[in-house]
């Protein structure tokens, strides 16, 4: 655990850039959702913000017909190929966006506070184990709440320097203790 190797007495939160994963945007009509779940071997939650896991794959429902799928890079080609073979029966769109976004992880005692510096929505109202597409400052981000003070945040690649620069300012501010 990263939290264990970190001294939070001096660090209000830890900001890490996580290694790349295979990331897909999946779109399918709700009528075909069940069929596609079977074909892909994934659960596609039908409520916005809900998540599921199957093996090492994670799914987050971002919209009524939109899911984000994360899989280990090793499983990437397998997912693409099952989707392709299901396509004729179950029309859908599976677009790889692994490189579109970079995943930042925020954890530690003031991770939630750090997010409230940039997110207008009530972040604490997102239950652990759910997620949301929302705003951080001027960047659209996808938040995954993995623990009370443990978040992943997908940020479009070109927005990362800005998001990090804001979080650096927040870090300095929180370190000051005021």
């Amino acid at each position: 655990m990263t939290t264990q190797r970190h001294n939070f007495d001096t660090q209000p939160f830890l900001l890490e850039e996580l290694p790349p994963v295979a990331r897909f945007s999946l779109r399918v009509r709700s009528a075909n959702r069940g069929a596609l779940e079977g074909a892909l071997g994934l659960e596609l939650p039908d409520l916005v913000g809900h998540r599921s896991t199957r093996g090492q794959a994670e799914v987050l429902c971002l919209g009524p017909d939109e899911w984000m799928i994360l899989t280990p890079e090793a499983d990437r080609d397998a997912l693409v190929s099952v989707a392709a073979s299901a396509y004729m029966q179950i029309p859908h769109s599976l677009v790889e966006v692994s490189d579109r976004e970079i995943t930042l992880r925020l954890s530690g005692p003031q991770a939630l506070t750090a997010l409230t510096a940039g997110c207008p929505r009530d972040i604490d109202a997102i239950p652990v184990g759910r997620g949301a597409r929302t705003l951080f400052d001027n960047a659209t981000v996808v938040l995954w709440r993995d623990g009370p003070q443990d978040f992943r945040m997908n940020v479009w690649r070109s927005f990362v320097p800005h998001v990090r620069a804001i979080l650096d300012k927040v870090m300095a501010e929180l370190k000051s203790g005021l």
Partner: peptide, 10 residues
């Protein structure tokens, strides 16, 4: 009309 553009996109 409104769009939840930084959310579900609808």
């Amino acid at each position: 009309r409104w769009r939840h553009i930084h959310g579900c996109g609808q």
